Amino acid sequence: MSETVQIPSIKQDGAIPAYVSRPAGTAKGAIVVIPEIFGVNPGIRQKCDKWAAKGYLAVAPDIFWRFAPGVELNPDVEAELNQAFGYFQQYDPADGVYDIESTIKWIRAEAGVAKVGCAGYCLGGRLAYMAAARTDIDASVGYYGVMIDTMLDEAHHIARPLMLHVACEDQFVSAEAQAAMHAGLDDHPRVTLHDYPGMPHGFAAEMGDRRHDAEAELADSRTEAFLAEHLA
């Protein structure tokens, strides 16, 4: 069962629209699905529905709700891709962390699910890293997160497990940035990095031209095992 809910912002600046997909029975945990720069589009909703089918409560907050509520963009359409880049430039990721924390609190208090993890993509991958450093989320996963190399000074705040999937041919995360991530995080006891040689940004999208089935399935299987372990 799926629905759209309004989650009160802990900043007290409004309510965050969120897509919620519920499992058939009692949830064995909750997953915050953090969107890319394309909004809560069909691919993000499909990710939520897949988590629900596996027994999790899945919640995808609309991270652009303050200035582009309800936007859904297709990365395979050039005009919509450029629109998404504009939103990325406008976006304050600190607000994203507030929205994730608001979602965590709503899940625990209103939905009654104690253990909460997240899976984020692109900008959402960066937010997954930030959530691991700045919130009490139980476990976090980031896919091809952007600009993580600029935030490595926050790594010492990471107290709960974090997994990062790194696309080795990511056109938005340079080889130098990837090397910095490894140098800063490989020795961290709570952080696991997986490299995907030859993979571009967006390889684990649910649909569209960017998806690479084999590598997406490998990354998703690692994510599922990781979150199952840490949300048990």
Rank of each mutant, 00 (worst) to 15 (best):
H165P: 05
A159I: 04
P161N: 14
P189R: 07
I10G: 00
S221L: 02
T135E: 03
V116H: 04
I31Q: 05
D220P: 00
P8E: 00
F172C: 08
D220G: 07
C122L: 10
M199W: 03
G39F: 03
R22P: 04
P35W: 01
E206Y: 13
E72S: 08
N82K: 15
Q83T: 14
T4D: 05
T26P: 00
A205Y: 10
V20G: 01
A214Y: 08
S174E: 06
F64C: 13
P69M: 12
E176N: 09
E36H: 09
A24Q: 14
A79Q: 14
D13H: 03
H194S: 09
P161S: 09
C48E: 01
E101G: 02
P61V: 09
Q6G: 04
G112D: 12
R22V: 14
L185A: 10
F85D: 01
I44L: 15
A27H: 06
D136L: 02
Q6W: 00
D209A: 10
V166G: 06
I10K: 00
H201C: 12
H165Y: 09
L123H: 10
L162V: 06
E154M: 01
P35F: 04
R126I: 00
F38P: 09
R210D: 00
E217R: 11
G125W: 09
A27E: 10
G112A: 11
D99K: 15
H182K: 14
L185D: 06
A109G: 05
A119P: 01
Y56P: 11
I63W: 07
K11Y: 02
E215S: 08
Q83D: 08
Q171E: 11
V97I: 15
C48F: 06
D136R: 01
Q46S: 11
F203D: 05
G117R: 03
L164S: 04
I137F: 07
V173W: 07
A132L: 04
H157D: 08
G70P: 05
F38G: 07
G120V: 15
G208L: 03
Q171F: 11
D153H: 09
G142Q: 06
V97S: 07
D13M: 06
M1P: 00
